[in-house]
């Protein structure tokens, strides 16, 4: 029967998809580059050396990978529940604010490592609340999560600016460059020669494993999937679609909040306006490229992070703008959507 799929067939199908997507995306980008008179080979080697040319450079890739992977984990929950959590950027920002709030409270007299842990929890909670707020707007107010999330992103952006220029401003001077640096002991430990805190990598990997486990091996995960597939049928299975969706928003927002918290404790050591660095939006692309499945997410995150980090070299060696990495990422996603759409329409037609 054609409806039953076995494992080797599935793997083969996926391998074919990946090949097709890469060919399409790379083909399109190569054509564009050739039309502009730029050698694709030069670009490739520049990007590669930029990303993995040295330990330091690879460290830079990892600093992008960690928050990107966390945002993707958050989005896996919400996409699975059939929700377009465009408000993820705001959830990252709120996570950063929640973490900063605790890190500034050094008067608590807690040991630094405990304080950092608590601060990340605060990031999880505040990101989760922000996601839950968008969920409540949807459940109670009938506001689509896309519009609610977009609105809350602007609110979050305004809130962080107000904090940085107002109550949390630097000693004597308010500056867009952010708050004062935290005390050294509140920086997450980064070994000499590293630019990324090993603990943050561990947190990201754990978050991914937990996300995968919850989504594929728990009743809750199955219910989230069911609600995403058909909210109308859910009550017949004793599932509340509104509450399940809200739970997914809270969990998703919480994990995005951890990404914001790590940006604060590991990367910038202060709160600054562009703290989310657009990782939330980039994560939307990653999850779409992964066809909303958990498995390929870490690898795609690594590729995207390498592109982002590698492209910093472009202006230096080739006098090209680094936004070329965005073009490549975008081409990949469009190619992927094309391939998935094509396959779906074939399946539907058969």
């Amino acid at each position: 029967m054609n409806s039953t799929r076995n494992l080797p067939q599935m793997l083969l199908g996926q391998a074919r998809d990946i090949l097709l997507i890469s060919l399409l995306a790379l083909g399109a980008v190569c054509c564009l580059l050739l039309a502009l008179g730029i050698s694709p080979a030069d670009i490739a080697s520049t990007l590669a050396t930029g990303a993995v040319g040295s330990w330091l450079k690879f460290n830079h890739v990892l600093t992008v990978w960690v928050p990107l992977l966390l945002c993707c984990c958050g989005l896996l929950f919400t996409f699975r529940a059939g929700l377009w959590n465009i408000g993820i950027e705001g959830q990252v920002i709120l996570g950063a604010i929640g973490t900063t709030l605790l890190l500034r409270a050094d008067s608590l007299g807690l040991p630094p490592s405990l304080l950092i842990g608590l601060a990340l929890c605060a990031g999880f909670i505040s990101g989760g609340l922000w996601g839950g707020f968008a969920g409540l707007l949807k459940n109670r107010g009938g506001v689509n999560e896309i519009f609610g999330g977009l609105g809350l992103n602007f609110v979050a952006q305004g809130f962080i600016l107000w904090l940085i220029l107002g109550p949390w401003k630097r000693e004597g001077i308010a500056s867009m460059s952010g708050t004062d640096l935290f005390a050294r002991e509140l920086w997450m430990y980064t070994p000499p020669g590293w630019r990324v805190a090993p603990a943050s990598i561990v947190i990201a990997i754990c978050a991914f494993l937990v996300t995968w486990y919850i989504l594929s091996r728990t009743r809750f995960g199955l219910r989230v999937k069911a609600v995403g597939a058909n909210p109308a049928a859910a009550p017949l299975y004793s599932i509340r679609p509104d509450r399940t969706g809200l739970a997914a928003m809270i969990l998703g927002g919480g994990i995005a909040g951890i990404a914001g918290g790590l940006q604060v404790t590991c990367v910038y050591h202060r709160l600054l306006p562009p703290i989310s660095s657009g990782y939330g939006y980039l994560a939307l692309l990653v999850v779409m490229l992964a066809n909303y499945k958990a498995g390929p997410v870490p690898i795609i995150c690594l590729l995207f992070a390498a592109l982002a980090a590698g492209s910093i070299q472009l202006p230096i060696t080739l006098q090209l703008d680094s936004s070329l990495s965005g073009v490549i990422q975008g081409a990949c996603v469009v190619a992927a959507l094309l391939v998935y759409g094509w396959r779906k329409s074939r399946k539907g037609g058969a």
Partner: peptide, 26 residues
């Protein structure tokens, strides 16, 4: 299909959703 089933979910997943399923699955 539009009111009682979850498209994209398998027969097994429907049984898990409808039956007495423990919180953690094997």
């Amino acid at each position: 299909l539009s009111e009682a089933l979850f498209p994209g979910l398998s027969i097994r997943e429907h049984h898990l959703l409808a039956g007495e399923t423990p919180q953690f699955l094997a």
